[in-house]
Design a protein around this nucleic acid. Sequence first.
DNA 1: ACAGCCATGTAACTTGTTACATGATTTT
DNA 2: AAAATCATGTAACAAGTTACATGGCTGT
Lengths: 169, 169
Amino acid sequence: MLKYAMLGLLAERDGHGWDLQARFEALLAGTWPLNNGQVYATLKRLENNDLVTSHVVEQDDRPDRNVFSITAAGREELENWLTAPPPPSAILKDEFFLKVLLSSIASEAELPDLLRTHRQHYYDTLATITRRRLADDLNSTTKLLLDGAIRRLEADLQWLDDVELSSRL
Amino acid sequence: MLKYAMLGLLAERDGHGWDLQARFEALLAGTWPLNNGQVYATLKRLENNDLVTSHVVEQDDRPDRNVFSITAAGREELENWLTAPPPPSAILKDEFFLKVLLSSIASEAELPDLLRTHRQHYYDTLATITRRRLADDLNSTTKLLLDGAIRRLEADLQWLDDVELSSRL
DNA sequence: ACAGCCATGTAACTTGTTACATGATTTT
DNA sequence: AAAATCATGTAACAAGTTACATGGCTGT
């Protein structure tokens, strides 16, 4: 997926690896930290596939930059991905769902523990995100993202209640 | 993740590759189809790590089965995973969120198209899942899963409205 | 002096994805 | 005769994860 993230950021404007990583993390409000190695590896693959090109920009007081630009083929790849509907399998391919499911069938004794841990964790995350949402240096897109995350967290918390109720029957 | 799914199914009872795949797909109500190759590859890796063991069961009229059992180490690995809270990065690591985000910054002209396509797709999926939820041959765990999926889909649909509203300003 | 920022990457390992390959039995 | 079910796997490739490695400049 990072591949498309890089293409998207480059479609906005050119950038070098370090810069792209910083922009990505800012856009995601720090909720999706990256290892720099992954960024450089992804950019190299994109270049091998001619979806981006690069040129070196020399600097005196800083290390030289390797600045990337998106190509026409890269733009096309990005558009295709953006407009394609998600595969039908995507909705339930979720670690949280899978944990509850497996706990129910394989390890029922652990279910209450799992539910407690996760409920706690979801409340904490909800609090963190709600707090972050209030910061005034966020761009509007990031705000939207956080709103979406809040809606999902609330949905998941309600579902946790469902699961707990039905496990107590 | 499939690794843990296999461990979970084996914790319920022993099984061979084919059987595990069928049980997995039934549990997920067919929403997460697998390629058999992935199943066998995953089982082999688990065996290499001594998380499962296998023995051949001969059959006359059918190909022989390679039946797997979970080991003590496998059980431990499963328990650890089940009780561990999700990493904080997991909530927003989502293809749908990323698409909306990137479309907003990189390709604003495509946003309405993306929103329309995805809204349609989400409604369709909601309808499909709701219908499947009514089938009476589902086990209670699968029903729960579908309930969770419905809650999420509804949350995402509401969020799509948010995004559309804010994009029209 | 030390921490933090700027900037680059490689290497090893684990997962996931897709395609290919084989072959018997049962049902339509 | 064809399609579905049962049953096994290999191989190639793409992507994600983590650790390692280097080095100058800036602010405290």
